[in-house]
Amino acid sequence: MNSIIEDIRATARQLLTDGKVDVVIGYEKGSLPLSATPCFVRSPQDTDKLIWDETCENNLAAFSTLTQGKKAIIAKGCDSRALVVLLQENQLVRDDLYIIGVSCQGVINKKKIEAETGEILEASINPGKITVKGMECDKEFTFAELKDASCQTCRYPNPVLEDIHIGGLIEVAQQAAVFADVTEMENKTDAERQAYFKEQMSKCIRCYACRNACPLCYCKECFVDCNSPKWLTGGVDSAENLFFQAGRVLHLAGRCVECGACSRACPQDVDIRALNRKMSKDVFNMYHHESGISVEGSGALNEYSADDPEAFLVKE
């Protein structure tokens, strides 16, 4: 990873020195063990604070629409897919965007560590291994054990759209989309599924970290914030929370790039991904569509055709 970060810094430095961009959106070291934090670099001398490793878990595309001016953005595969969707939906101007593509091995899910070691006191990353000193115990993990769920099913570790590629490419072992996790959920009885989601949704505090971490939740007014009509109350219970989460997922149908930023952002560890994955599977099966793969296409549900065979289409 060391040469990768040097190349990222050099690229960022050059872009800022040449005045090609006003800001480079990347990651710097965070304040907690095994954490990175988004950073906005505006001068060449600040580029040395940029980092790149398995802790860079935020989807920086979420900042692309909020940041003024010409921007370079460090993009993993999923980040680049989100940028593609944002471009398809005319939320970004391609000429104002410089994508520094980096292939991604996946990111660490710290919750998996904390479940075993308690709160993380210190940690170090060595190739393939993560050594943790925890509140309860010390443990060495392999990276594979700690990989976030969304990275385990990821088929696009290499950026799909980029202006420069840093480092090597990652070979994708998995050819066809696999939805084993969704099938497992589908195979549960209705009562089991209901109980599962009831428990998950009871944890939600409606802080909207999931929505705001999502690069594709850019509505100026989210349906949950709308008070006329008032779709749901401020009540925080399983039913209202599910209504919010399900509504959000449906709005992401054919748009979600499965980066998992929503689940990782959740301070309450709600399994939001279970809903997203089911929706992705349905879209994949019904439309043979995966979102954000190419700028040329558009979202599965974003197209209108007068030849649409569906009877409900009103024709003149």
């Binding site: 940041t67 802080c207 909207y208 970290a209 929505r211 952002a265």
Partner: peptide
């Protein structure tokens, strides 16, 4: 700048 404007 990096704040997501959530209420976590």
């Amino acid at each position: 700048e990096k704040c997501l404007s959530c209420n976590a």
